[in-house]
């Protein structure tokens, strides 16, 4: 009687170690589909990206450092990261409010409002760029009122922030919305019946549950803003040291045929993109664990 129970774990452990790379299935086409997808992705995306990093190391290390730490480059990082961060914060706050209103309240035209949130995904960035510039220029619909107060929006960092807010707007709404919709009202009822005020319920029950998705939306919005080019290039004015974002500096280097310099700056941006991608993945993992999804 005791023989099978003792031999079972002994037999099971070596089998588990030898688990094949791919589990057997009756379905066909695994080799073909994975092979094609890998080949396609490698040729079009991953080999070219690896070459970018290799290209930047064509420069001697001290020259490479000079390029990525030049005063103009550092000024562009500061503008790119600063405005992207600010835009992501704005989107975090208003994205939460918009998601809240769309999930919890009913009002006329709600479906249309819900659909409009995706406009920045659908509207080409160049179109958004010239439209925002025209609105916020000193003689534009909104810009003229600020001009009276002697505040310039277009062609300054404020304009860059507005363009980046536009671009990143859907991310927070669309990551928070489903999580908020899945929250169980019973928990809030319990909290209220135990004497918590609505604000306490929000602070201690709802907000912690939304936090992972809020941070994910923030990171997605931030990551998108850092790489953005089309909508910013029109509204920024493109003054070196002042309103020049890093992608534009790369463009300038390319136009001067400084390929290695462009590649070096591109690699810096790529590094940040990968760090953010990793962070977003960790956040999403955390979010799934929290919601049990």
């Amino acid at each position: 009687m005791s023989v099978p129970t003792t031999s079972e774990p002994l037999a099971a452990s070596p089998v588990r170690k030898k688990q094949p790379w791919v589990q057997k299935s009756v379905l066909p086409g695994f080799g073909l589909s994975l092979g094609f997808a890998t080949l396609y992705a490698s040729l079009l995306v991953f080999i070219p990206l690896a070459l970018l990093v290799l290209k930047s190391f064509e420069l001697p290390l001290d020259q490479l450092w000079d390029v990525v730490s030049s005063r103009r480059a550092v000024a562009s990082y500061r503008l790119t990261f600063g405005t992207s961060f600010l835009a992501a914060i704005i989107n975090l706050i208003f994205g939460l409010i918009v998601a809240w209103v769309l999930v919890r309240y009913t009002f006329p035209g709600k479906r249309i409002v819900d659909a409009v949130v995706d406009l920045p995904f659908a509207l080409p960035t160049a179109v958004a760029g010239i439209a925002l510039t025209t609105i916020y220029a000193p003689n534009g619909w909104v810009g003229q009122w600020f001009a009276l107060l002697d505040i310039k929006i277009a062609y300054t960092w404020i304009g860059v922030t507005i363009a980046l807010t536009f671009i990143g707007l859907p991310f927070v709404v669309r990551t928070v919305q489903p999580v908020l919709a899945d929250l169980e009202l019973e928990v809030e009822e319990a909290s209220a019946s135990l004497g918590a005020s609505r604000w306490q319920t929000f602070k201690y029950i709802i907000f912690p549950a939304l936090l992972p998705s809020l941070l994910t939306g923030f990171a997605l919005s931030f990551a998108r803003a850092i790489g953005e080019y089309g909508s910013v290039v029109f509204i920024s004015g493109n003054m070196p040291y002042k309103t020049e974002i890093t992608p534009l500096l790369i463009m300038t280097k390319l136009e001067q045929f400084d390929y290695a310099g462009a590649a070096a700056l591109g690699s810096v941006m790529l590094l940040f993109s990968f760090i953010l991608l990793l962070l977003i993945n960790l956040l999403q993992h955390w979010s799934h664990k929290r919601t049990g999804g």
Partner: peptide, 17 residues
Amino acid sequence: VPFAVSPVIAGLIYMLL
């Protein structure tokens, strides 16, 4: 990955090739 990469870099890599 292509979502995380700046469009300018997408152009740049083919330029380098």
